[in-house]
């Protein structure tokens, strides 16, 4: 542990520390998982797995940004494995994957959300973190380990794609 660094899971009671960490990051983990899985139940399972993985590894982080960076990679890998297994077993119909039942969803909101979910990962994650989750460019860049200018470019391109897709669908 480096001196002067505040470890995000450093607490007198490990259970409390983990709870605090969980509360702080669960929505972040869930949002990324949902963007991959396109399914609320699977996204919750992935979130659970990731926090279990964290528990078992005993990993600590010097700050929140690094914690989120680790969580992003962990979620992404879990999702990829899950999708890979899903494809192999084909336990569900493909159409089910894109159905995200959510109440109070307007048609426009649903359309944009589906467009976001269809984006390639390199556009989807920056857009999700920056535009949807509200992280700054700097934070998004640190979490995804990419340059700030890259974040701006990808967000811009993601928006352009969504705009085009929704226009095409309208047509």
């Amino acid at each position: 542990m480096a001196a002067g660094r505040e470890h995000t899971m450093l607490h007198s009671d490990p259970a409390d520390a983990f709870s605090a960490f969980y509360r702080k990051h669960i929505q972040f983990v869930y949002a990324i998982a949902l963007s991959f899985m396109k399914n609320r139940q699977d996204a919750e399972d992935i979130a659970e797995d990731v926090f279990l993985q964290l528990l078992e590894s005993g990993q600590t982080f010097p700050d929140d940004t690094q914690a989120r960076a680790w969580l992003t990679v962990a979620v992404r890998n879990r999702c990829r494995n899950h999708l890979k297994n899903w494809l192999r077993s084909r336990r569900a119909e493909p159409e089910e994957m894109e159905q995200i039942p959510a109440p109070e969803q307007s048609a426009e909101l649903k359309e944009v959300m589906n467009a976001i979910l269809r984006l390639p990962e390199r556009y989807r994650l920056p857009l999700l973190l920056y535009a949807v989750e509200g992280y700054s460019v700097k934070e998004t860049a640190a979490i995804l380990h990419i340059n700030e200018s890259t974040v701006r470019t990808r967000v811009q391109r993601a928006r352009a794609i969504i705009k085009k897709e929704t226009e095409v669908d309208d047509a």
């Binding site: 969980y22 869930y30 949902l34 919750e44 979130a47 926090f51 944009v112 949807v132």
Partner: peptide
């Protein structure tokens, strides 16, 4: 629109609590 979307990417509070309980048991 984007701000409104953030609510779509939220886990319901009840599920957050439920998952926390599960994780606490697992930690023990």
């Amino acid at each position: 629109l984007y701000e409104a979307l953030s609510s779509q990417f939220r886990m319901p509070e009840a599920d957050v609590d439920w998952l926390e309980q599960k994780l606490r048991l697992r930690a023990a």
